Measured scan of single mutants.
Amino acid sequence: APRKVEMRRDPVLGFGFVAGSEKPVVVRSVTPGGPSEGKLIPGDQIVMINDEPVSAAPRERVIDLVRSCKESILLTVIQP
């Protein structure tokens, strides 16, 4: 079942996760003590960023979407 995860941007750590460059977009790592800790799990597949589906989106679009979130971000993720 999809999970909705909302995180506030940390001034130092950002959102505190690293996503892979393949499709679908998969969470590779979560920064300890960062905003994503306890919310995202490595292996989570990101299916939506805010209200935009990203399963088939180019990597550049995913990066732009994350960067455009100055304060908070809403991710919809699934464990494949």
Rank of each mutant, 00 (worst) to 15 (best):
67 R>A: 13
39 K>D: 03
49 I>F: 03
77 V>H: 02
27 V>F: 01
77 V>R: 02
31 T>L: 06
64 D>G: 12
76 T>H: 11
1 A>V: 05
54 V>H: 00
60 E>M: 11
58 P>K: 12
8 R>N: 09
57 A>L: 15
51 D>V: 04
63 I>E: 12
58 P>M: 05
61 R>M: 10
22 E>H: 06
19 A>H: 12
48 M>Q: 14
6 E>M: 10
38 G>M: 06
44 D>G: 02
54 V>E: 02
71 E>H: 09
72 S>C: 08
5 V>C: 03
76 T>V: 07
54 V>W: 00
74 L>I: 15
46 I>G: 03
73 I>W: 00
61 R>Y: 13
80 P>Y: 04
17 F>K: 01
70 K>F: 05
29 S>N: 12
2 P>Y: 14
22 E>P: 00
22 E>G: 12
38 G>L: 05
11 P>R: 07
44 D>Q: 04
8 R>Y: 10
39 K>T: 06
10 D>P: 00
16 G>F: 00
45 Q>K: 10
29 S>A: 09
19 A>L: 15
60 E>G: 13
39 K>G: 05
47 V>K: 08
64 D>A: 09
42 P>F: 04
7 M>E: 00
45 Q>M: 09
62 V>K: 00
20 G>P: 02
73 I>L: 13
68 S>H: 10
67 R>D: 13
78 I>P: 03
36 S>Q: 01
35 P>F: 00
67 R>C: 10
31 T>F: 07
65 L>E: 05
44 D>R: 00
40 L>P: 00
49 I>L: 08
50 N>E: 11
62 V>H: 02
23 K>C: 12
77 V>E: 02
9 R>D: 01
17 F>G: 01
78 I>H: 13
18 V>P: 00
9 R>Y: 09
57 A>C: 14
45 Q>C: 08
23 K>H: 12
59 R>C: 12
62 V>Y: 05
55 S>Y: 04
51 D>L: 06
29 S>Q: 12
49 I>G: 01
40 L>N: 00
40 L>T: 01
64 D>S: 13
41 I>Q: 14
33 G>M: 07
24 P>M: 03
29 S>V: 07
40 L>W: 00
37 E>G: 06
3 R>A: 03
54 V>G: 00
16 G>W: 00
41 I>T: 15
42 P>G: 05
73 I>E: 03
29 S>H: 07
17 F>Q: 01
33 G>I: 04
14 G>Q: 06
65 L>T: 08
2 P>W: 08
63 I>W: 11
76 T>I: 06
78 I>E: 15
38 G>T: 07
42 P>S: 08
42 P>I: 09
16 G>Y: 00
14 G>A: 05
74 L>S: 15
55 S>F: 07
31 T>Y: 08
36 S>V: 02
68 S>D: 11
10 D>W: 03
79 Q>Y: 09
62 V>A: 04
40 L>H: 00
59 R>Q: 15
14 G>V: 02
18 V>T: 09
20 G>Y: 10
37 E>Q: 12
68 S>N: 13
41 I>Y: 13
71 E>D: 14
15 F>K: 01
33 G>L: 08
65 L>V: 08
68 S>L: 09
12 V>W: 07
68 S>F: 08
5 V>K: 02
47 V>A: 08
77 V>C: 10
23 K>A: 08
48 M>H: 07
70 K>I: 04
54 V>Y: 01
18 V>I: 13
32 P>I: 09
29 S>E: 14
3 R>S: 03
9 R>N: 06
30 V>I: 09
15 F>R: 01
66 V>A: 05
67 R>W: 06
22 E>A: 09
26 V>Q: 13
